[in-house]
Design a binder for these strands. Structure first.
Length: 423
RNA sequence: GGCAGGUUGCCCGAGCGGCCAAUGGGAGCGGACUGUAAAUCCGUCGGCUUUGCCUUCGAAGGUUCGAAUCCUUCACCUGCCA
């Protein structure tokens, strides 16, 4: 597989390199041939989210440019926990970590190619860490880590006030050991990760230098933030999960569709494989006519296709068009409407009398968290049945509210839809 | 080890015996305006069988007709002195 010499320029143009070790050395290495690189994912939840997606896609970019991926799942590091500002983590059980590790592995696999001369390899750091003896660990790895420098690391120094366990304090040693292990056994010489990983990345490169006298490279992707500087990747429900069971593909699509104007270009560069001319053209159109939201539409379509596939994305686009079309819902076919509502999220309710109240349905569909909230929403004029605002808090569904004899369209606010299938 | 102070709803932070589900700000949610954007303005913001009831103010006890507010013990945190 030929090496693409424009890779590093492309990554830089996309804004994917927030920090890096010696840039000239990195370029030289990338130009010289297929570089074996690794990126790690700790199983901190049952699914990866938006932040991880940056890394997964970056790995894919590197592979497409001819380099050789080693995707690491942190079966061992997930048992320990990377220190974070919000405080000490709760340890997860071995069973939980194992299950999450498997799920994370399965989420990563579709993005990489496991065939050809630069086929990807999946590794699990549990394999070389679990059986390591404490004595060996302290002698072979620990000896290379001056505590005074560990204490000076940003995350650690911030945590000294609030407290940090020896367990989390030691995390960097494990991750560094991973890099060293992959360097020794597979000739891996490049690691990248999120910018919050920068300290861990450089620690690994340094361990390779100290323990093996080798030369390794690292770079970090930037932390993505919203236009107001706050953290990204949050929806009403929580993180922007990639798992369809934890966040519906419809909600995933809607997230990207609703991205702020000033972020569209940045996100197109980071999260799509569109070429530079394509993205620049989109940005030009977006700047000229932002209200058409061409950037957001393209972004949502591209990213949802990458994560959930083209077929699902088509269905979501049709559903979104139906629900946001502004036309009369009764003008849609029952099939179209039903399909749209199933994408948006729907519940089934047994037919019969009496039909449920709107308050109950708002709770059942998850549009409201409690009956109090449901009542409040109606009182605020934010609840709609079949696109008609509900005025009466005690409103109960009537038989002729049913569209096509079986569907109700419930809406909270401007864009939270849910379907109710009666039957 | 000694002295002083703190722990309040998602977050920050008032309250210091009844009028407290608890001031104010932020986040969130809804409305208006829009482009399913941003900004702005307005409203809302524990739960329920909702003119009332239930559960909340670090934990457990106690005083009192009545406690977030007083007392005791415990846990954790912060300053000052060793």
């Amino acid at each position: 597989m030929p090496i693409d010499p424009t890779l590093l320029d492309d990554l830089e143009w996309r804004g994917l390199i927030a920090h890096s070790t010696d840039r000239d050395a990195l370029r030289e290495a990338l130009d010289a041939g297929s570089v074996r690189f690794y990126v790690g994912f700790d199983p901190t939840a049952a699914s990866l989210h938006m932040g991880h997606l940056v890394q997964v896609l970056t790995a894919k970019r590197l592979q497409q440019a001819g380099h050789t991926p080693f995707a690491l799942v942190g079966g061992a590091t997930g048992m320990i926990g990377d220190p974070r500002d919000s405080g000490e983590r709760t340890l997860n059980s071995l069973d939980t970590v194992k299950e999450w590790t498997d799920r994370v592995r399965r989420q990563i696999e579709p993005f990489l190619s496991f065939e050809g001369p630069n086929a990807a390899t999946m590794v699990n750091n549990y394999d070389w860490t679990a059986s390591l003896s404490t004595i060996d660990f302290l002698r072979d790895v620990g000896k290379h880590f001056p505590v005074n420098r560990m204490l000076a690391r940003d995350v650690v120094s911030r945590r000294l006030e609030s407290g940090i366990s020896y367990t989390e304090f030691s995390y960097v040693l494990l991750q560094s050991m991973d890099f060293l292990h992959l360097y020794r056994d597979f000739g891996v010489t490049l690691q990248f990760g999120g910018s919050d990983q920068w300290g861990n990345l450089t620690a690994g490169a340094e361990l390779i230098r100290r323990a093996a006298g080798g030369k390794a490279h690292a770079f970090a992707t930037p932390l993505l933030t919203k236009a107001d500087g706050t953290k990204y990747g949050k929806t009403e429900g929580g993180a922007l999960w990639l798992d369809a069971d934890m966040l519906s593909p419809y909600a995933f699509y809607q997230f990207w569709l609703n991205v702020e104007d000033e972020k569209v270009g940045e996100l197109l560069r980071v999260f799509t494989f569109l070429s530079r001319p394509e993205i620049e053209e989109l940005e030009a159109q977006h700047t000229e006519k932002p209200f058409l939201r061409i950037g957001q539409r393209t972004l949502a379509e591209q990213v949802t296709t990458l994560v959930h596939g083209a077929e699902e994305t088509e269905r979501i686009k049709e559903a979104s068009a139906a629900l946001f079309g502004g036309g009369d819902l009764r003008g849609l076919s029952v099939q179209t409407l039903g399909a749209a509502l199933r994408e948006a999220g729907s519940v089934k309710v047994a037919a019969g009398t009496p039909l449920p109240s709107v308050v109950d349905l708002l709770v059942d569909t998850g549009l409201a968290k409690s009956k109090g909230e449901a009542r409040r929403t109606i009182g605020e004029g934010g609840a709609y049945l079949n696109n008609d605002r509900i005025e009466d808090v005690d409103r109960v569904v009537a038989a002729d509210d049913l569209i096509g004899g079986s569907w109700l369209v419930l809406r909270r606010g401007k864009k939270n839809f849910a379907g109710v299938e009666v039957g």
